[in-house]
Amino acid sequence: MMVRAAVLILALLGGCGMARADGLVVSVSQAQVHITSGFTGADLVVFGVMDPQDAAGGSPDVVVTVRGPGQTFTTWRKTRVLGLWMNADSRTFLDVPSFLDILTSRPPEEMAEPASLQRGQIGLGRILLKQRIGDDHADVVSADPFRAAFLRIQQAQGLYRENTCGVTFIAPHVFRAEVAIPGTAPLGRYQVEVQLLRGGRPVASATTSFDVQKTGVEQSIAEFSQRNGLLYGLAVAMGSLMLGGVASILFRR
């Protein structure tokens, strides 16, 4: 009875972003985040409903991981050469999430053994970040200075986040997690992965997704500049000269 009611709620909240796995249903409050001229960010809610039998012995641990579209970053280390600070060496992070939010119902360290946390990529310290080192592709130990610096800078920019009490239960088998999309969020498809853990072992998982995209005037401008760069450039150049001319006439004494 309870399950049916909860599923009904989810269907009402947003039918398109729904995903179903064994005993776990997840949904996002908005399947599409529209960017308009006044866009400064958006708040999304991820809802999840599990099989009541799974919740019988108390609520399990929940991990919600939101990944933005993949992007390649380079982290540079500056060193002093002949008195000048310059970019000396670098590591390239290949196709890593451009946005990352990891929400858990309690600190991951209390949920499971380090090995299984590592396997589930639970927590910023354990997320897989593929690096190019020479010709090799690999992830390195979490103590790597380049990796640590990358995570620190991305967090400072508000693009990577971790919240160890970001998942709350609204009923023993229904939970919600709030995801704040910043205004600087990259555009594209965002993947939402939900994992359930009990006694340190994964018991269920489900995925869903949502899109962040431009609409209206913003979309038209971007499309025009992409499709016909020359015409767009000429229009901007002519417009700017006209504006300069108008200003000069307006301010003429």
């Binding site: 450039g233 000429l234 901007v236 150049a237 417009g239 300069g244 200003a247």
Partner: peptide
Amino acid sequence: AAATVLHAQANGTVDVVLALVLMVGGTM
């Protein structure tokens, strides 16, 4: 003016909204 056209065609990096706000302030 020539650079605007070249940048728009070669790189697609001319932001008309940003340029417009700058221009209104700049011409004044």
